[in-house]
Design a protein around this nucleic acid. Structure first.
Lengths: 248, 248
DNA sequence: ACAGAACCTTGACCCAAATCAAAGAGACCG
DNA sequence: CGGTCTCTTTGATTTGGGTCAAGGTTCTGT
């Protein structure tokens, strides 16, 4: 989302640190002011579950700060992460009143919620909101499909490299650090969460990270801080030149 | 989509056998008549490529008859199917002018196309179309995420059983055959396409189908015709009680 | 400063699925 | 009818990643 859009949007939502990506920034309707009337905030601690799959969900929300995951599980406990919620991401589905996934906070998190009913009414009156939501949903669909390629066809090493590349890019975008040459960032996920994301076991994740380190593709400081000396090398390890992916 | 919607919709699109699911059936606006003005048909033979990923795509379309696949590939040829287009499915993305995936006809296929520009203009004037598209896109996203669970965490046998269950259900829905007890249908995919769908090799697909046959979960007649004596048994083999999935 | 917990790494071993290889079964065609 | 092509099955072997197990590192709370 271009910077000027964020700014313009913030005119409508001035006390809130979030960029409501659900809302069309180009729409100048005063309807958007009504978002202020129906919104409220909720906080969760790291590890807390925001909502369980199947539970009633009478709100939609944007992430203000922190990180949450969307996961699905089989009866026997096998878990697959199907999405990651980062600041400014939108969650919740107009027209459906129960959650489709478990949402879990992996860090302390603040969400900006809108009660679903009034939000839907606002959508009806303000087509631009729906259009923006459609755009966002299509982006998520593309990201999910790219992840399908990763889950179905990539090797463990490629999966790890892809994840690192995506996190690096996302981090660079957030920090607005222009990334020439060396990149450094903190992994926002535990080894286990990475495993659930990539369809691997945590042991394999650990082993492959060690292998990438041994081969000089990345450097590690502590468990979480990663330095990438040669981003192109990492991309090459990722098995494709994909420039997008899940974290969008 | 409920039957009455299809019927009501067909008022607006009477000569076309397709149910335009992209269009809100409940909308009585005469705007919908303009769809007639901007639509045209294209046919493809089995095996033909409709469009390559990255190509310019200046239309959106609904599938009238036949089956097509959406696939992504890595440079070395590894292929992952990320979607299956069945009659009445919508393809194409307002707001993006190149295709994100390879679209290939797996049977002879007829598509009902709308030039993108006028379709987008129509969307602007008719919010219900956008809303319906949003609904459909959210359904596709759910399906893609369910597929992520399958790709990341299910065994080969569970993958095959899941695919069979989904095809069986979809077939039953299309045929409007009420499915008490025994189900029978034709597989719409080659072993190789199934493999690309499930993230397996074609040999593994063949072996697992043979195993399910040997264990009495399914019966096979020829290579493609499948009979399911006990649908619950098949669901159980699929590893979850999922009632939806990719084919929607 | 110490105990405990949570998280991470590494090794040894195993197995499900990939790979390599060969042969069967239809479909189509001259 | 036999030949060829495409699709499918089955067998033998290999291997990537899972499983089980044992320690190592931080971090937190007392």
């Amino acid at each position: 989302m271009p910077a000027e859009d964020i700014q313009q949007l913030s005119l409508h939502c001035s006390d809130c640190p979030i960029r409501h990506r659900a809302v069309c920034a180009r729409c100048e309707s005063t309807e958007l002011d009504r978002l202020e009337e129906i919104k409220y905030y909720r906080s969760f601690e790291a590890g807390q579950t925001v909502i369980w799959s199947g539970d009633k969900m009478d709100f939609v929300a944007s992430v203000v700060s922190g990180i949450a995951t969307l996961t699905q599980t089989l009866e026997d406990g096998r878990t697959q992460m199907v999405g990651l919620l980062l600041p400014s991401d939108f969650v919740g589905r107009p027209g459906r009143d129960s959650a489709a996934y478990n949402i879990t906070a992996t860090t302390d998190i603040v969400m900006c919620c809108f009660r679903k009913k009034p939000f839907e009414e606002l959508m009806l009156r303000t087509p631009h909101i729906g259009q923006r939501l459609l755009e966002m949903t299509l982006d998520e669909l593309d990201a999910a499909r790219e992840w399908m390629l990763l889950l179905g066809r990539k090797t463990a090493r490629e999966k790890i490299a892809s994840l690192l590349a995506i996190v690096a890019r996302r981090d660079a975008a957030i920090q607005l650090r222009v990334a020439q040459g060396q990149l450094a960032f903190d992994l926002p996920l535990t080894r286990e969460a990475m495993a659930d994301y990539l369809g691997l076991t945590l042991e394999t994740v650990s082993r492959q990270i060690s292998a990438l380190k041994r081969d000089g593709v990345i450097e590690l400081e502590g468990k979480r801080h990663v330095t990438v000396p040669d981003f192109d090398r990492l991309l090459c390890e990722a098995g494709d030149d994909s420039d997008g992916g899940f974290l969008v």
